[in-house]
Design a protein around this nucleic acid. Structure first.
Length: 543
DNA sequence: TTAGGGGTAAGG
DNA sequence: CCTTACCCCTAA
């Protein structure tokens, strides 16, 4: 039986492989991961997201968001500027932030640009107040100055001339490398290696380990439950190599193993567990077995890669082309841009106060503030319904941020792409044909007051009150003038994969968690909404 | 956010 | 004509 801790190790290992996002999702779903996620695993997930953005060459607000989370998730001990990844993190943060600013500006909607810049400013200010040392780094100081300059001048001229995308990608690449090195190899690999070499698992400070100078020791755990930090140190030939220098952790491998054995009494901070010796009170984990598991995992990943090719990148590119073409031929969008411009003209602060129902920017501003993160994906989008789409991402964020985080949607990286209007490097605002028209409204012909009163017999003395349902009198002419017709999405029949996935998901997560299910399988339920899932389930269970 | 009623259009 | 997918609305 797989325990939550071993599941975390496996998850960590899998994410360190070049595994497709959807596959990672599937594996995550199948694993009984601990809640909250261990620090190491959280970190690995976020780095995987970055790597994913990098591989698609599409730094976006989601990339910035990942960096944001990584920044917030830094263990206190590594906030010192000595951390090797701190500097590159700061550089990457700045580069990606500037790229996003540049994108938001070239999206040719100044209010959106202002909103985003304001949010970014306050975020940087928040970070500064919180005082992580990473902000002391020169690049972020520079970022703050650049943002200030942008706001003062109103225009980000310098940025538009630069290739911010490439700068961001390069910076991410550098940071990823440093962060990966800092994180060290996956725990399973270390463990397998150590066990193969005839190791001893235990506290590096304990007497027994100090004596064994011809062996490799692994101490700590790949991710202690609920711990922000984890110690993973290797002692090779008596020399201790600390991969992460936090010596104090309440949840060590010993703890984990103890818990797994149900032996609460033996749970001690400095307990030493020796593996590989038949006389142990714990079941020995033989080296060949661990090796076999690791190899099997590796080979299965490779096999899956050979068999399955992720169709999404292709699809995304094609969709981007279509949308781009459509953008230039579509006058409606110009109209909507204008509407949004007017709605947002009072600035982000007042926009929050004067929140109107149909103003997508307002909702996003408020949502962003609520989340206290730069999750302003929707700012680049024009429409309320797009905001709903982008709401999938905050669910990921919650899971990563929250204490009771669950893992299922943690790597829904593709869904981020779909929910983000500016994730592509062209920076053109996009609108899908699939989207609803926010200004569309329905009209009931049946009980028009004008109609009814005009047709009413003048002799009729009966006093009638207007139905509360009717809000205003409108003639058919007015309606024809005002009405924008709803464009139905193209009918897309449910594939058997979708049906099967829905069935499984409902079996696993229960009926009614449509939003959650959608976020878990967003790759499979492409272009579907929660309501679609609900309706489909209704259909499926009807007969 | 979801459930559920109910309407409409597409497509077999 | 029937089923399915999509859509809208309202209550909880």
């Amino acid at each position: 039986m797989l325990t939550t801790h071993t599941a975390a190790w496996v998850a960590e290992f899998v994410l360190r492989q070049p595994v497709e996002d959807w596959l990672a999702n599937e594996i995550f779903l199948a694993l009984p991961l601990p809640s909250p996620l261990p620090f190491r695993l959280r970190h690995t997930i976020l780095l995987h997201r970055l790597a994913s953005d990098l591989s698609r060459c599409s730094p976006s607000l989601n990339t910035l968001h990942s960096l944001d989370l990584l920044l917030d998730d830094r263990p206190a001990s590594s906030s010192s500027s000595s951390s090797s990844s701190s500097e590159s993190m700061a550089v990457a943060y700045r580069a990606v932030a500037l790229h996003c600013v540049s994108l938001s500006f070239s999206a040719s909607n100044y209010d959106v640009f202002r909103t985003f810049v304001d949010l970014l400013r306050s975020r940087v200010a928040d970070l500064e107040r919180a005082g992580p040392a990473v902000l002391a780094a020169e690049p972020l100081k520079k970022l703050r100055m650049e943002i200030e300059a942008a706001v003062e001048s109103g225009i980000f001229r310098g940025l538009l001339e630069r290739n911010t995308s490439n700068e961001a990608l390069d910076a991410i690449r550098v940071y990823l490398k440093a962060a990966m090195e800092e994180l060290g190899p996956p725990f399973l690999v270390l463990a397998a290696e150590a066990v193969r070499n005839g190791i001893e698992l235990g506290n590096p400070c304990s007497e027994s380990s100090a004596k064994s100078d011809d062996k490799v020791k692994v101490s700590g755990v790949a991710g202690g439950v609920g711990e922000r930090t984890s110690t993973l140190s290797l002692a090779v030939n008596g020399e201790v190599v600390l991969l992460e220098t936090n010596p104090v952790t309440s949840s060590t491998l010993c703890d984990t193993l103890d818990r797994d054995m149900g032996n609460e009494i033996a749970r001690k901070q400095n307990a030493v567990v020796r593996l590989g010796k038949p006389t142990d009170k714990f079941d020995p984990m033989s080296a060949p077995e661990v090796e076999k598991v690791v190899n099997a995992l590796k080979s299965s990943c490779v096999d899956l890669h050979k068999v399955v090719v992720d169709p999404l990148p292709d699809a995304v590119m094609k969709a981007a082309e279509v949308l781009k073409n459509r953008f230039f031929g579509m006058t409606n969008d110009v109209e909507e841009l204008e509407i949004q411009r007017q709605a947002g003209a009072s600035g982000p602060v007042s926009a929050v106060k004067n929140r109107s129902k149909d103003n997508g920017v307002d909702e996003i501003v408020e949502q962003s503030r609520k989340n206290d993160a730069l999750d302003v994906d929707g700012s680049m989008q024009q429409r309320k319904d797009d905001t709903v789409q982008s709401n999938r991402e905050p669910s990921v964020e919650k899971q990563l941020d929250g204490i009771d985080n669950k893992v299922q949607a943690a790597t829904t990286i593709h869904s981020e792409m779909k929910g983000t209007g500016i994730s592509n490097t062209d920076g053109v605002q996009k609108r899908s044909l699939m989207d609803r028209n926010p200004t569309a409204h329905t009209f009931e012909w049946g009980e028009d007051p004008i109609e009814s009163s005009s047709e009413k017999s003048p002799t009729s003395k009966k006093i009638t009150l207007p139905s509360p349902k009717r809000k205003k009198a409108s003639s058919p002419l007015t309606i024809l003038e005002n009405k924008k017709f709803v464009i139905r999405r193209k009918l897309k029949r449910w594939s058997s994969l979708e049906e099967e996935t829905l069935r499984k998901a409902v079996g696993k997560h229960g009926v009614g968690n449509w939003k959650f299910i959608l976020s878990c399988y967003s790759e499979i339920f492409e272009d579907r909404t929660e309501v679609d899932l609900k309706d489909k389930w209704r259909n499926m269970t009807r007969h």
